[in-house]
Nucleic acid binder design. Sequence first.
DNA 1: AATACGTGGCC
DNA 2: TGGCCAAGTAT
Length: 358
Amino acid sequence: MDHFARKLLAWYDRHHRDLPWRVGPADKAEGTLPDPYHVWLSEIMLQQTTVQAVKPYFDKFLARWPRVDDLAAADTDAVMAAWAGLGYYARARNLKKCAEVLARDHGGRFPDTFDDLKALPGIGDYTAAAIAAIAFDRPEAVVDGNVERVVTRLFAIETPLPSAKPEIRARTKEMTPQERPGDFAQAMMDLGATLCTPKRPACVLCPLREECTALAGDDPQRFPLKMPKAARPVRRGAAFVAETADRKILLRTRTEKGLLGGMAEVPTTGWTARTDGETGTDAAPFAADWRSKGEVVHVFTHFELRLAVFHAERAEGPVSGGRWTKIAALGEEALPSVMKKAITQAIPDAFKASRERP
DNA sequence: AATACGTGGCC
DNA sequence: TGGCCAAGTAT
């Protein structure tokens, strides 16, 4: 085992984070490996998502679907609703598909190699390596955003991301030990998350400070270098919150593919790049006494949405392609955050009401 | 290979 | 306060 791995594992034994899906080094020393289902579920949720955001969702999913077979047998709508708010909803659809494949073709068990894991829906290079290393003790190179930061600093890699990825992978592979590869992967990620942070890294506490090339230089924080990002355009549209006298609102389900795929929404116009600011009620789903309720702004990864919100009270009647849903039952719907924002703008107590009547 | 894909927290 | 960032994947 090389110098880096030995020092890092010693640090991990003392300073590892305790996380709900993790088996700590003390328990692992007695031969206990974490449940692959827990590792998989957490890794999918953690893709581009903070630990803090994931925790309550992980607990909720595990309580409701304790084993992968339970998830395979679940209603897709229920899974989407449980995922609502966590973002990147293709993850939830692939999670369900993956559970079904495992239940049908693998007897409800996870494969234990990188290649077989990577063949599953929603599992890419990172997640396949992470599950293989953490749940099955296989010495795979696990490279996430934390590892990219740690490694580019350790070796002062001047190539910007994403061009530097092959070099980072090669370096990580060299460092990954045959023994405790799962702990090593988690140690690298813990180091990146707690000490080798993007801003103001705590180098004085770092177990690798003596061998860090970036620290020997003048400014470790400048790593990793990154290619400049494209500007985020603004798109505009209108959302229509139709409410009946008995407190129902009109919802639709978005198509499976694309933005917010398979999630619930209130009727909206298209979201276009036009900047004239003109958003009228001509595109409303039906004629009603639409009242303007102002605008909500929501920032997606690649554009900013400014949604003009309209509210109609005492709306009624059958509407094709939509469903009238009790405001008190909105908590069971797969509503993404942007839609909760729009509904709250029109009906401030909408989600308070749904909480009061479980 | 470059782009689409959410959300919330932080400074 | 606006940009950056978080355990990436699919196409």
